[in-house]
Design a protein around this nucleic acid. Structure first.
Lengths: 220, 220
DNA sequence: AGGTGTGAACCCCTTCACAGCT
DNA sequence: AGCTGTGAAGGGGTTCACACCT
């Protein structure tokens, strides 16, 4: 299955849940594609990697397809998760309902700052980072979230990996190096804004060029 | 310039800033690539779209290249930004130092909840969403951040676009539709976790298959 | 008729490998 | 000798267009 397809399956799943909640029983690839923000050819190609879950001339059964995608992604099972670094972002992540509602269960919030120990966030007490190994062992944690400052990220990452975590979601603005077999995904808020700024800057330049052309300054 | 290259320029910029702070004056494509987490061929190809800023046999001048990339992205200028939706995530974004340190200046925090008006977050008072149009006009805001719940996102987006915002960073788990000329980038925390879960699930399956093969249950 | 599933064409991006400059 | 800049080759993903099924 292409990586690009994997990255879109959760989008389809969300769209199907939305259709399901609205009471829709069946949908065409066109409808689902619109709800997911892609074109229908891409949607059908993506779904074809899962199998033939549609009916020609009719479309897809919403509940059935929803289950099949959830199963393929793996969110029909329960994924225990630890979050390391409970600053502003860690707080927000701990309170984010989108995690718990998708098969992810936060089993612990860890922070290196002794002053924060015991503080309760979203029903969980903040614990010492040294509790990590025991937690991973006891709960079978495979996924860890890093929301620490950048300088701490690699050390935290190494400890997570040593403890047995094999998938990491990294919010720290740092490049992490991990051994083979460990997956890292990175979310960088500032980079996203910079990409927007690049395009925004070019819009302004395009406007200026256009204005200049209309003024007869440039052009054949 | 390829979109994939644009998305990596901020990563190179961060690596260069890090090298600069460490007092490094010159670096090879190999060193910079390692710091940025890419291979050197890709780095050189990316930089070649900006021009010839390196010296053969020597490498790149850190300060010079840093400035050139910053200029290309557009972060040498000041970008006023509004954040809409000051829940947990909005709070975290308002306090995120990575924005202000990269040419982005948060000019307003807006929320629809009247109970939160006047509350001060990170030195800024929360204002009514109806102040939007005036703010965009007064500060020349081109970039907006949506951190509202999903059901509100499209309405907020429409208002932002109508007010003149042409770049949107969307943290709400919703597909936004915008007119041509408006850029949207989406950051979805739950989707990132689901992608990790997919690969994690397959690791377990691979382990089981391997164990079965070693047991002689499967195999030629 | 209507809509899915899919080979084939197309396009973008990555990687290779080396010419060319210092 | 060393490292950049870049054509050329290779791979992956998207889009097209239609065969095929209901």
């Amino acid at each position: 299955m292409p990586e690009a397809t994997v990255a879109r399956l959760p989008v389809y799943l969300r769209a199907l849940i939305s259709l399901s909640e609205r009471g829709t029983a069946t949908c065409s690839s066109e409808e689902l594609a619109t709800a997911a923000g892609v074109n229908s050819a891409k949607l059908r190609k993506d779904l074809s990697y899962l199998g033939s879950y549609g009916t020609r001339g009719v479309g897809y059964d919403v509940e059935y397809l929803r289950y099949q995608i959830a199963r393929e992604i793996g969110v029909t099972q329960d994924w225990p998760v630890v979050i390391v670094g409970i600053g502003n972002l860690g707080h927000a992540l701990a309170n984010y309902s989108g995690f718990s509602s998708r098969g992810f269960r936060i089993v612990a919030l860890l922070d290196a700052d002794p002053d924060r120990l015991g503080e309760v966030v979203s029903g969980l007490g903040i614990r010492a980072f040294d509790d990590l190994e025991g937690l991973v062992e006891d709960h079978g944690v495979a996924i860890g979230v890093i929301a620490t400052p950048a300088p701490a990220a690699q050390d935290v990452c190494d400890r997570l990996v040593a403890a047995g975590v094999t998938s990491i979601l990294n919010f720290a603005p740092a490049v992490l190096s991990v051994p083979d077999g460990v997956d890292v995904r990175k979310v960088d808020l500032s980079i996203e804004l910079q990409i927007l700024a690049y395009h925004e800057q070019r819009k302004s330049l395009a406007d200026q060029t256009l204005a200049a052309e209309l003024d007869g300054v440039v052009g054949a």
